[in-house]
């Protein structure tokens, strides 16, 4: 019996080593650095206790980041989930060219951020951008804006572009989830007189509960890590209007050489991610421990 349990540990040992080296060590090291004044390069670090966290509390940019994170997370997760569900449901119905549509909706995910940034910069540029040119062409000059140069519209477009890029992911996850729902359930519902509307709201939606949680957790973590689109399109500007945790970590670490402060932001991010994930998992498993996430 004893021998058997040891061999079990041996089997998970390689994975545990990888986990310890690539996950645990960086987290612990990062937490340690957050207590030091260090430029990220020099050989000496000065222990400053909680000073870096104090700096963060007093930093007005951090408040903007938290606000941006909340707006971004709520908007992108909800809209992407609704659109993803809509497209998945549509494609499940054996549409003509369904594979083509699925590919087209998924395609933006594989586009590199630089390309996406370049394309949308051209669309949204104030003077000769396609969007403003189009508005002028249809005599709606009054609607023309400096889309990426005005704080409010810049954040809106970062959200729109993210939704455009990641709706395909939500669609695919929901589509996979829908394939796992037995056709028998729908057949039985039809016999009982349920229409398409009822089938969707009383069968599809509840049976995709695990998928909803997965989409939500992934969306929250994705929102916390958002970097590429705001960095390429606005570099967190104008005046921090599109600043996110990751863009600010980049600034603190590589422009200001404040590795300690940068690590403190990472710790805050880590704590937020842990709390959100733990809360969601608790809610999910609260009533039934046998459930699986999609």
């Amino acid at each position: 019996m004893k021998r058997k349990s040891y061999s079990g540990y041996l089997f998970i040992l390689p994975m545990m080593i990888l986990f310890a080296v690539f996950i645990v060590y960086p987290i612990v090291y990062n937490i340690r650095i957050s207590f030091y004044d260090w430029n990220g390069i020099s050989r000496t670090k000065v222990f400053v206790g909680l000073e870096n966290y104090q700096t963060l509390i007093q930093d007005p940019v951090v408040k903007i980041i938290l606000k941006n994170f909340l707006i971004f997370a709520v908007c992108t997760i909800l809209i992407q989930a609704i659109l993803g569900l809509f497209f998945a449901n549509l494609l499940r119905r054996k549409l003509k060219f369904a594979d083509l549509y699925r590919t087209l909706i998924y395609l933006p995910i594989v586009a590199t951020p630089t390309i996406v940034g370049n394309i949308f910069s051209r669309i949204l540029e104030s003077n000769r951008g396609y969007l403003n040119e189009f508005l002028r062409a249809i005599h709606l000059e009054s609607l023309c804006h400096s889309w990426l140069a005005e704080p409010k519209t810049a954040l809106v477009f970062i959200i729109i572009i993210n939704i455009w890029q990641w709706t395909g992911y939500s669609m695919l996850v929901y589509y996979t989830g829908m394939l796992n729902i037995s056709e028998d359930v729908y057949e039985a519902a039809k016999i009982d007189g349920a229409g398409a509307f009822s089938q969707f709201f009383r069968i599809t939606l509840p049976l995709l509960r695990g998928t909803h949680y997965t989409i939500f957790i992934m969306g929250m973590i994705g929102s916390l890590k958002t970097f590429d689109i705001p960095y390429v399109l606005t570099r967190g500007g104008p005046n921090h209007a599109t600043e996110f945790f990751s863009t600010y970590i980049n600034t603190q670490s590589f422009s200001l050489f404040n590795q300690g402060v940068s690590s403190a932001i990472v710790v805050v991010m880590f704590v937020i991610a842990m709390v959100i994930t733990a809360a969601q998992l608790y809610l999910y498993y609260h009533n039934d421990k046998d459930k699986d996430l999609a």
Partner: peptide, 13 residues
């Protein structure tokens, strides 16, 4: 300066 100047980079816009 042009409209939306803070949305344009020197290199390469």
């Amino acid at each position: 300066f042009q409209d939306g100047a803070v949305g344009m980079t020197l290199y390469n816009d």
